[in-house]
């Protein structure tokens, strides 16, 4: 899915009332990139997540406990975003596949080569279970004026990601705050 418009065009405004590119204005508040996962929720990633964090919660390791407590197997709630993350490569895909595409669209539109995530909210609804097929959609909520931080000059943006299972039941919502920036020493001269 492409993003309409481009840098420097149009008359949208950011959160300080400054002019935004028309493409960005069109993105704010509009569900984008509605997608269904390429693969179903699987236990291997549940185990990987627990192993990476030393999580011994028996609801993820012991089916009898999962049955008794959760009505069947569940996966760690904080795995919410991973089910929609694209493969690094797959047949027919052009170039590197990236998650949270709106974030990367904004980096490109504003010409900000670097980015970090600063805030993250996770809200957990219906449990995600092995075999579920998750869908999500991304909604850009806001874009800040240009700000200068210790890592560089750029903009903050807030993106919501809503997740549903194959029955259309909400399983979670994520809110990301990202900061796209250009490194301080690169401003006004050497690009990297």
């Amino acid at each position: 899915m492409s993003v309409a418009g481009g840098p420097g065009s149009g008359s949208g405004r950011d959160s300080a009332g400054e002019v935004l590119p028309a493409g960005v204005e069109a993105m704010i508040g509009r569900p984008m990139y509605e997608q269904t996962a390429d693969f179903v929720v699987e236990r291997a990633y549940s185990y990987n997540t627990c192993a990476a964090t030393g999580n011994g919660n028996p609801i993820f390791w012991d089916d009898a406990v999962a049955d008794a407590v959760c009505g069947g197997p569940v996966v760690p709630p904080t795995t919410l975003s991973l089910w929609m993350r694209p493969h690094y490569w797959q047949p027919g895909a052009a170039g590197e596949q990236v998650a949270l595409q709106v974030h990367f669209d904004l980096k490109e539109i504003f010409g900000l080569p670097e980015a970090v995530m600063t805030d993250n909210t996770l809200e957990f609804h219906e449990p995600v279970r092995p075999g579920d097929r998750i869908s999500h959609r991304q909604v850009l909520r806001s874009v800040s004026p240009v700000k200068t931080t210790k890592v560089g000059a750029g903009r903050f943006w807030v993106i919501d990601v809503e997740y549903h299972n194959q029955d259309g039941v909400l399983v979670g919502v994520e809110r990301y705050t990202g900061f796209g920036y250009r490194r301080v020493e690169a401003v006004g001269g050497e690009a990297r």
Partner: peptide, 20 residues
């Protein structure tokens, strides 16, 4: 999640986290 549910035990169900 691991830190919190180590404390709650398996019946603890995470509802929301906001972190910076």
């Amino acid at each position: 999640e691991r830190f919190i549910t180590d404390w709650t035990g398996p019946f603890g169900r995470p509802g929301r986290m906001t972190f910076r």
